[in-house]
Nucleic acid binder design. Structure first.
Lengths: 255, 255
DNA sequence: TCCGCGACTTGACATTTATCAAGCCTTCGT
DNA sequence: ACGAAGGCTTGATAAATGTCAAGTCGCGGA
């Protein structure tokens, strides 16, 4: 399906395309097309060769990986996010699999075109580097989150981050099923349940997808959020996706 | 200290400088200087603003991070590796601290110069993007290693990787103290000792820094090394550092 | 409406990992 | 040579996390 004007507009406002001139935009987007996928569709498996840059415009996508019958979720992306950019730049294979969590709308940009745009226009290339650097830093944060915090601390920080993104009120709505959240936080669903009950001490009460806070101060004392790990103020995107926001919203958090 | 010709030669052969033309090289290296540091010197602490790109020419450097009285090692770098490139591209703060493990020789390139070089020469900028993409993929591998494997499996794979790098013989020498190795593998020194004894079943015997293998097949059956996680064939650099090698030695492992 | 499936929770238990303490051994400096 | 310090190992114990099983709840389809 060809790209409609409204889509082109949306993409232009995004990521490294924002400041590109028209000629570079046309070069980098040459052959790009928009595609819709139903929920639970595998877009890419680990090891697949990567021919397109993916730009998620609607819906959500889980990036994951497996080994020896184990699986883990590395990130959950929300619009607008790019993914597998690194593999595209290196003309390499995917290290992660990508699966839609809901019906999603994805712009697929031929890797050749993107690389040509980068090589022809240094300013555009620099913008892609910024995106890559932001993604890198998102991963560094993710590793720190996992190696330095136990599961309850990760949950507490996740909740505080969500609270900030949802406007700082005393009640939030979890954006994912709890089993998906558990996978994202690197634990089992059973463990997530227990982590939630540990947090009832800290004024956290759960009712389905609704989570209420009665004492944020004491929760923060446990969570100890840090600008060197967490990305408050970022939109509803996690880890890898955050990276992009990190740059875009640099006013608040120049990461 | 100004850059001597021999150093310039060494740097030119490295990383994204390899294919740069002279003018771009001069621009990107403008104001660069070489510095020697003794062992255990803190080059950078988390949160510090980053003014220079670091290029390790001699010695070794540990990248780490801390939170709430805990500390973790994210990578150990060996020559020739760049570090904190992402922070330089984004003109941002360091997310990791950097400490020399031994007496080290480091080339410090002003961030301004590097960024100018990238913005003036698209081909050079693309090479930096490739470096960044490689670093990103190194981190993805690292996360997968930690989330999908237990500590014994991580050790087993580490040993097999070292064996491959050291020529595939039946005996290797550990390149770091065991306590450093434990930190790198994300466990306590006590746990590392126990992991080694678990591997004696699999034909692994340890004598100080020397490790001998009597049955690689059975060790591989436990370790199950994967090109989607491990980077065999890479030089003696871990995670983040590997990323660079990944591209440079792309013939064997185009990752 | 009723049924059944799937998400979620809870408890009992197993496994993995960390912590604390003690002791051995090597290294290095006096 | 001696002694102190640090790296390494081992055992005992505790904490964190995963696994298995059962049971509740709510929602959607027949």
């Amino acid at each position: 399906m060809p790209i409609k004007n409204t889509d082109a507009e949306r993409v232009r406002n995004v990521s490294f395309f924002r400041n590109a001139d028209d000629a570079t935009f046309d070069t980098a987007m040459n052959g790009a097309f928009l595609q819709r996928f139903p929920a639970n569709t595998t877009l890419l498996m680990e090891g697949d060769s990567v021919d397109f840059l993916y730009i998620l415009l609607e819906g959500s996508v889980e990036l994951g990986a497996g080994w020896k019958s184990k699986d883990t979720t590395l990130a959950i992306l929300r619009p607008v996010s790019t993914f597998i950019l690194a593999a595209v730049v290196l003309e390499s294979d995917a290290l992660m699999s990508a699966v839609t969590l809901e019906r999603s709308e994805i712009l697929m940009v031929p890797g050749d075109s993107l690389r040509r745009g980068m090589k022809e226009n240094a300013v555009f290339g620099f913008a892609v580097s910024e995106e890559l650097a932001g993604c890198y830093r998102g991963l560094v944060r993710s590793i720190k989150n996992h190696k330095l915090r136990d599961s309850t601390e990760r949950l507490a920080n996740y909740l505080l981050t969500q609270r900030a993104r949802q406007g700082g009120q005393d009640e939030i709505v979890l954006p994912h099923e709890k089993r998906v959240l558990a996978a994202l936080l690197g634990m089992t669903p059973e463990n997530l349940s227990r982590a939630f009950s540990k947090l009832s001490d800290k004024g956290v009460s759960v009712d389905g997808a609704r989570v209420a806070f009665s004492n944020v101060t004491v929760l923060e004392r446990l969570a100890r959020p840090s600008p060197l790990i967490d990305n408050h103020y970022a939109q509803d995107r996690n880890t890898l996706g955050k990276a992009y926001t990190e740059r875009q919203q640099g006013v608040l958090d120049q990461s």
